Amino acid sequence: MANEFPQTLTIAGTDSGGGAGVMADLKTMQERNVFGTAVIVAVTAQNTLGVQDFMALPQKLIDEQFASLAADLKIRACKTGMLADASHVHGVVENLKKFDFGPLTVDPVMIAKGGAALLADDAVETVREELIPLADVLTPNLPEAERLTGMTIADETDMEAAAVALQDLGAKNIVIKGGHGDAKVARDFVLLMDGRSFWLEAPRVETVRTHGTGDTLSSCITAELAKGQDFETAIRIAKKFVTAAIVHPIAVGNGHGPLNHWAYRQGGAE
């Protein structure tokens, strides 16, 4: 029967270098045995050395992409990534309210690994007020969590407090990623909508091949939710998937290299 196969959607920008954005999302979704689709919000000129340029697409074309998917496919879970600026964040929010694409994972992408800004300063408030309240899962890294909450996150107690603050903004389940810290073990804090919380940890790997880590985590969560996994299970699987992709690297590019998206399938889960 048509549309029985699990289908997912990424709403984000491209990465011409293949390591992050929509490219990383679709690779991850394919590896997790779901059919990935995309609404392209922006196009970047990008490689492992950085983002050289980007341009957001006209809102009309973005709207038409949403409508095209809704008219034909059965999207069971979706995620957002790079959304460029306040007007595009608002436009995406309006489409998410219009169409039912299942549980939403929000990866509040703000800055690329090389330091380039991927979200305009004036858009942070729009993300906070309009997008986060729609999120079933919110996956900020430490700098993003600080920006969204206005807090300084210096230790694990601060991470826990920031998760509560983000939940107060309307997001149901929070994953604050600890990869930007400097401890020997990278720890992520998870706060679920039922009040339960836990830490996920993995040995910190000294490597520059971590481009697209946040995109990969959020798209793996999305894939697992599309297959019917509960939120905790989806988050735990995604952590293992990303850890394997970092621990078993591939040599691509001369800068912040991409993850090995097929490491988990090849038995690389650690």
Rank of each mutant, 00 (worst) to 15 (best):
A145R: 07
V109Y: 03
K240F: 13
V190K: 06
A226N: 03
C78K: 07
D182T: 14
V93Q: 02
D155H: 07
V137F: 10
D100G: 01
A71Y: 10
C220P: 10
P249D: 06
Y264C: 12
P140D: 08
A38H: 02
V252C: 08
E146Y: 15
I174M: 12
C220L: 12
N3T: 06
V22H: 03
A70D: 04
M151Q: 15
Q229D: 12
G195E: 09
N3R: 06
D230Y: 05
A251E: 13
I75S: 13
G13N: 00
I11V: 03
T152Y: 10
S16A: 06
P103V: 08
H248S: 04
G18V: 01
G150T: 07
K98F: 13
V242W: 00
N141Q: 00
T44D: 12
T105L: 11
V51R: 02
T216S: 01
I62L: 08
A67H: 10
R128E: 08
V252Q: 10
T139H: 13
E129W: 09
K239E: 00
L259F: 03
L104D: 08
C220M: 13
T149Q: 02
K97Y: 05
A70P: 00
R32C: 15
G21Q: 00
A183N: 11
H90M: 15
V124N: 03
G102D: 00
D63N: 08
T126Q: 11
A238K: 01
D121C: 15
N173H: 06
V39I: 03
P6R: 01
V247F: 14
T207Q: 05
V175L: 10
K79I: 04
I174Y: 10
I246A: 04
M159V: 01
L138Y: 04
L217D: 07
A24K: 00
L69T: 08
S16P: 03
A67V: 07
Q52K: 12
T105Y: 07
G36E: 05
R187L: 12
I40G: 01
E129V: 12
M82R: 00
A162V: 01
